[in-house]
Each structure stands twice: as C-alpha cells, then as structure tokens.
Amino acid sequence: MVDFHGWDMPINYGSQIEEHHAVRQGCGIFDVSHMTILDFEGSESELFIRKLIANDVRKLSENYSGLYSAMLNDKGYVIDDLIAYRMDKGFRLVVNCATRGEDLRWISARAKEYDVNMLEREDLSMVAIQGPQSPNVLKNFPAPIDFLKEKKRQQGIFQDDIFAAKTGYTGELGFEVILPNEKAIDLWNIAISEGAKPIGLAARDTLRLEAGMNLYGFEMDETISPFECNMGWTVCWQDDQRDFFGKESLIKQKESNDLKELVGIITEEKAILRQGQKIHLEEENHARGVVTSGTYSPSLKKPIALARLPKSESTFCFAEIRGKRVKAKIGSPKFIKEGKLIFKEKV
C-alpha cells in the first residue's frame, strides 16, 4: 500500500504483470474512488462548462454520455484532464485526485459569475471494470448495468443511484461505475466472485501507457500545451462563437513553429525507458526530447514510452539510459487497443 495523495492505495495485489494480462485477456476491477467527482447544477451550468473546458459538451446529445477534455489556464496550458458527462440537471466532471486542490480553486473562482452550483461528491465511490470479459462479471448485480451492453463507447446509464458509462483508462472494452459508497463494496465483491481480478496502481500505469493515455504530471502539466501532449484532438473549434479559457493563447500557439509533439517509442534493447530520460534525434549530440512516461510493456514484452520530441522526419531516436544510447523506433503515441497492436511506426 502507498499513500497516494491522501488515499491508501495498493501498488499491486500480487504480480503487476499478471494483473496487466488479466485486464487484456479477461477482466480486471480497479478501485478508483480517489478520483474527484464534481457535479454542476444551475440554469447556467452548460454555459459555464462550455467556458471552463476546451472540448465542447454541446457535442453530448444524450444524457450520461461523456467526453474527454483538457481544462486550460489563460496561457493555454493544461491544468487538468477530465471526463465531462451530461447529467439530468447539469454536468458531472471527473477530475484527477493529484490536482484536486488546484482544480477546485480554479473552478470555484470562475463559477462565481455564473448561476451554477458545484458539489464535490465525497459520498460516491468509483470502480472501473475493464477487459474483454467485463460485461459478464456484473450479471448478478442488482442494477441496470446490463443495459450498458446496448451502449456505445462514452455512453452511459443512470438508475437507482448508480451511474455507469463505457469509459476507461486501459484501451479495453469496459466501464466505470460511480455509486454510493455503501453500495460499492457489494459491487466489488460480486465482480470478484464472477471472476474479475483486482488491479493495483502499477498495472493501471502499464495499461494506460500501452493504450497511449496521458497521466497528469507526466505527459502534461501547467506548462504544457494540449498540442504537445496529443490532446489537440480534444480541443473543439466547431462553434467559433464559443469562448473558453485558454482559447486566445491556443490560437497563438497554433501559429508558432516550435511546438513539440508527443510520440510513442519502442526499443528492442534490454533497457527500460523511464520518465525523464533524454532523447536524441538521429546522431545529434544535444538532447532535444524527453521520455514523459516509460515502462516495460507486458503485452509487447518490450520497453515502450511516450516521449516529447521536436517535430522531425526521423523514424528513430536514441534514449540516454545509464550513460548509454539506446536506439528506439518512433511511431504513434498508442500501442495497444482491445488487446491488439496498433502502434504505427513512422516511415
């Protein structure tokens, strides 16, 4: 167990590699109750959320659907990444635990000018159920989670105090359930009895990295543009009448030529890519890139990493590992989806 921003959380329950495979091949269950759940209600809640985040919740045509977004500061850098769901009376944001304090300060200060109420839902727990077998483990749960089978990715349901949506942080089929604390233990026990394996923080990290999903504080922070952490696609420009925090700065960023990009790298060498290692392009002497997150991929049985590099034509790079230069292929910042290799090498 470790202290994770005030929460006691398990790094692993047994072997982190076995936990990883359990999610890719069967079903894993994650206690993610540390995540901060914020509900927004009020006549101007939509107006406010459209201003607050860079993606546009206007796209959510159905209740309980969610979208991934960045929340930007005035410089157009990332304060946090989050999922925003449309609810019956407003919106629900699920934001990171590590950034909770800063998020609450930022949001509260800006909500004052709107008819909107923010409520932090400490009465709710959050459980993620992920993997190809995930639809099968809650057959006996006394809730309508079965209905989720009919839903597409990012869509959800809400009934009897139980909210569930087809979202996740692993690249696998699965869903996340937000429910009253007192019901969470039942859900956990039923899922386990149906074959779900408990998954700790360590496997959560290898799974999200293979899926090419960002981790706040690693891929991005308050000094990083969404364009430099593969979040450009989450910024919505459709409605040019819409203003959002950071918009003006983003327009300027787009015009500049020195933006770096987040790429995926893979090495065949026996040395693990890890956060902070310097990256050289070609045979250059000065390092111009850095590993943002690196690990050993249990699925590919090779070291993989996300790295921020200057844009270039290079198809490979060199990571500095313990004084040696280790060659790595450059490609898409995604490696695995639904158990299959999706990494595209640059050519």
Binding site: Q16, I17, A202, T206, K270, A271, I272, R274, T295, Y296, P298, R322
Partner: peptide, 9 residues
C-alpha cells in the same frame, strides 16, 4: 550486475 523490474532499475 543490473536488475530491472517494471518499477525500477
């Protein structure tokens, strides 16, 4: 010698 786990070298 050097030993590397997923966690650390």
């Amino acid at each position: 010698a050097i030993v590397e786990s997923v966690k650390a070298a």
